[in-house]
Amino acid sequence: MRPFSPNMIGLYRFLWVWLTLLLALWFGWHLLAQFDFLYPVWHDYAGISQNIDKYAPLNHYRHDFELTDRETRFALFHGIVEAIHNHGQGLKELVYQTRNGTVSLLRHSEIVHLQDVANLIDFVNHLALVLGTVWLVITLLIWSKLSAMKREKRIKQSFTRRKDSLLNLTIGLALSIGGILLIGAQKVFYQLHIWVFPANHQWFFYYEHSLMSTMMKAPDLFAMIAITLLILGLAFFVIIQLAINALLSTR
Rank of each mutant, 00 (worst) to 15 (best):
H60N: 14
S144G: 06
T98S: 08
D69A: 13
A24I: 05
A75V: 05
F123W: 11
A46W: 03
Y61S: 13
A24T: 06
V130F: 15
Y96K: 04
H126R: 10
I244F: 14
P6N: 10
P40R: 01
K187P: 05
R107W: 06
S5K: 11
I225Y: 06
M212H: 02
I9T: 12
T250P: 01
V81T: 12
D116G: 01
K92V: 10
Y55K: 07
V238G: 06
L31Q: 11
L23V: 06
T160D: 09
L247S: 08
I177F: 04
L140H: 05
R70S: 09
Q97D: 02
P40H: 00
Q89Y: 11
L181N: 14
H43D: 03
G172E: 03
I239R: 12
V95R: 13
V17T: 15
K54G: 00
S176D: 03
K187G: 04
Y207E: 02
H113T: 06
T133W: 13
R13Q: 07
V137R: 07
I244D: 10
I121K: 00
L31P: 03
T102K: 15
L247F: 04
I244S: 12
G179F: 00
T250G: 00
L211P: 01
L141A: 14
P198Q: 09
L248I: 02
A218F: 09
V112P: 04
V41F: 08
F159Q: 04
V238Q: 04
E71T: 08
V112E: 08
Y96E: 04
L120P: 04
Q50M: 06
T68E: 12
A56V: 03
L167V: 13
I9L: 15
S158V: 11
H60T: 15
I111K: 03
S49M: 11
G28N: 02
I52K: 00
Y206P: 05
N7T: 13
A226W: 08
D220W: 03
K150D: 08
N100Y: 11
F237T: 13
G88S: 09
P3Q: 05
G184Y: 14
H78N: 09
R62V: 13
G179A: 01
